[in-house]
């Protein structure tokens, strides 16, 4: 099993803090400003939730799989710069739905939940298609962007997808 697979979600989230990526998981406990995205306005509470969800939906070792920016920053940058107003609205509405759901089931701090509890939350989001479309779209968007961010990082592309920047050759028929 790969090193990254042995890490649970809680550890993954905590690593963000350890790495000092310029963001905090606990903005409500201090005065540090959260990044501002004009088309995706988030208060500290929702920003923290997005951070936690985007890490928990794909927990990986960020020390091994280094990325140019934290995952939540990537997601918000793509949303802010490259997606339609409708998609942004769906995302924000879905995030709000999640917030309300978590409040209802008294699970507000994702980083304190067990893997089983987190799975139940994600299962609920994945099954919300047709019942809460915005929550489902939020789930899809967050998962897709988190996956793109991870699979597009240097180590994954080179080691897992065999990416070569300067291949210098082409072999048309290589046995695999």
């Amino acid at each position: 099993m790969h090193k990254g697979n042995q890490m649970n979600r809680r550890q993954a989230i905590q690593q963000l803090t350890i790495m000092g990526l310029g963001l905090t998981l606990y903005p409500s406990c201090n005065t540090e400003k959260i990044p501002q995205y004009s088309r995706v306005p988030l208060d500290a509470k929702r920003y923290k939730l997005l951070q936690e969800v985007s890490e928990a939906i794909l927990p990986v070792d960020h020390i091994t799989y280094v990325t140019p920016e934290p995952r939540s920053q990537y997601i918000l940058t793509i949303l802010n710069d490259c997606t339609s107003t409708e998609e942004v609205t769906n995302f924000l509405t879905g995030l709000e739905s999640l917030q309300q759901y978590l409040t209802g089931v008294k699970m507000s701090d994702l980083d304190k939940l067990s893997n089983d509890d987190l799975d139940k939350i994600f299962d609920y989001m994945a099954d919300s298609k047709g019942q809460d479309e915005n929550l489902y779209k939020f789930y899809r968007t967050t998962k897709n962007l988190a996956t793109q961010h991870f699979t597009g990082c240097e180590k994954f592309m080179i080691e897992e997808l065999k990416f070569e920047f300067v291949p210098g050759r082409y072999i048309g028929c290589k046995e695999v």
Binding site: H2, A56, I57, L58, N115, L118, D119, K143, T147, F150
Partner: peptide, 15 residues
Amino acid sequence: TDNDGHGQTLAEHLL
């Protein structure tokens, strides 16, 4: 890559 699932399952699938 296999992008099915979420959480630890998704991480394991991808890797």
